[in-house]
Every structure is written in C-alpha cells, then in structure tokens.
Simulated scan of single mutants.
Amino acid sequence: MSQTPENLVEQVEKSAKNLSQPPLEQWHPELSGDMDLRISRDGEWIHKGKPLGREAIVRLFSSILRREDDGEYYLLTPVEKWRIQVEDTPLLAHSLDVEGSGNKQVVRLTTNVGETLEVGNEHPLEVGSYEDSGQPRPIIRVRHGVDARLTTAAYYDLAKHVVEQMIDGKAVLGVFSHGNFYKIG
C-alpha cells in the first residue's frame, strides 16, 4: 500500500483528537514500509520529489515523528509506522529569546513548526560538530529522539549569552538556562 500524507493525517486526527501531542510512547505498530518523504538539511519536507505544500501537514507530521534506537526516523499512527529519510535534523530552531540573567536565565527557542521550547532538563541543548567539516552543530532535544538544529542566526543570538564557568579547574564556555549550564565550546 502506498501511503499519502493525507491518509496519515486522517488516521492521526481520528486517534488523537483533542491532544496537544499524540501519545507516541503508546504506539508500537509493525513497520509498514518506507515512505517517499525526505526532510532536507534546510528543513523542507519533500514528498515524492515535491515540497509538502500545506504547513498544517508538516506541523502534524512533526508531532508523530519518532527517532528510534536504530537511528532511523518514523512517522507513527496507532496502526502504521512509516520510515522516512532525514538529512540532518528534522526540525530547525530559528529564533531565540532569553529572559533573566546569570544562572536564573531561561533560553527559549522557536522551531520551524511554531513550537516554543525552553532549554532545560526536558529540552537540553547540546553543541556537537559535523564530522566532515568540524563546524558546530547546535541542537535542542524536542521529544521522542527528535532534535531541532539551531539556525546560524539563532546560534549567533545564543553566543551573545555565553559565559565562562570553571569546571574541574578548566574554563568552559556555555549558557545557563533553568539553572543548568550547557557547554557551547
């Protein structure tokens, strides 16, 4: 069976009415197959070679996306599980807001699907690097193994809030959010 975005939307809407986030942790269907859906590095969702035209479908799909222990990404419904391709991270964090200062500050990031996340225990920030270039790869955990990569502009905005902390006798650069210190460099 060839799955379409519209069919998945219908299934999710039936099973997750009035829920802000579908209960993916309760859904464990067998693999239905591979869907011809790819999320490009720049955050574009492409189905059968064409961008998904409806923002509402992208927002819904982001809520039913899970990365599993095998490192693969899947769109889930209570009865179907479709593997998709992701070039880097499925979501982007494009704007940053900081409230407060010092270890009392709170860093908020807004994703390309309109979700605002506060950096903290539930949504930790991590700055790794790309293996091929060594360039920074700042990400925030969203949920279910899914991350959002900070865009260059958001990363530069974050850099304005970097402070130095002594950790194990060494100076470390990072930012505070919700009382936690997140290493940047």
Rank of each mutant, 00 (worst) to 15 (best):
S62R: 12
V98E: 00
R38Y: 06
H94Y: 12
G33T: 06
E55Q: 13
P51Y: 04
E44F: 09
K50D: 06
R38S: 12
G102P: 06
D69K: 14
G120V: 01
R59C: 05
V107E: 01
T111F: 00
H94W: 09
L96W: 00
V106N: 06
K104H: 07
T89D: 08
S101M: 01
P124H: 03
D70G: 04
D70W: 09
I39D: 04
I84Q: 01
R54Y: 06
V106P: 01
E30W: 05
K50N: 08
G49Y: 14
T77E: 01
Q26I: 09
L76Q: 03
D70C: 08
L31Q: 11
T110P: 00
G33N: 12
G53H: 15
T110Y: 00
P78G: 03
G102I: 12
E115R: 12
V119C: 05
L117I: 07
R38L: 15
R66G: 10
V98L: 07
D34P: 07
L65V: 14
S32Q: 07
V119Y: 02
K50P: 02
G100T: 06
P124W: 03
T89Y: 00
R67K: 15
H28Q: 09
N112I: 01
K104G: 04
R54N: 15
K81H: 03
H94M: 09
V113L: 04
T111H: 00
S62Y: 12
L52W: 11
V98Y: 01
N112D: 14
R108I: 00
E115S: 12
E122W: 11
P51F: 07
I84H: 00
T77Y: 01
Y73N: 09
V98I: 14
R38F: 08
R54T: 05
V119I: 15
R66H: 10
R59F: 05
T110L: 01
E118L: 08
G49Q: 12
S40N: 10
H123C: 04
I39H: 05
V58A: 11
V106D: 11
L75C: 03
N103K: 15
V119E: 08
R83E: 08
S40R: 14
V86T: 02
L92D: 04
G120D: 13
T110W: 01
G43M: 08
R66C: 12
K81T: 02
I57M: 03
P124N: 13
L65P: 12
D42L: 04
N103D: 13
V113W: 10
K48N: 14
E55A: 11
R38K: 15
L109W: 01
S40F: 00
L91Y: 00
S32L: 02
F61S: 05
Y73T: 05
V58M: 10
S95W: 05
I57P: 03
E118Y: 11
M35W: 12
H123G: 08
M35D: 10
G102K: 13
D70L: 05
E30S: 07
G53W: 13
L96R: 12
E30D: 11
L52H: 11
L109F: 07
D34F: 10
P51V: 06
E68R: 13
G43E: 04
G100M: 09
E72V: 02
L125T: 02
P29V: 07
T111V: 00
L52P: 06
R66L: 13
E44A: 14
E87S: 13
D70S: 09
S95K: 14
Q105E: 01
L96M: 06
L91F: 03
Q85P: 04
V58P: 11
E118D: 15
E115G: 04
W45A: 11
V113C: 03
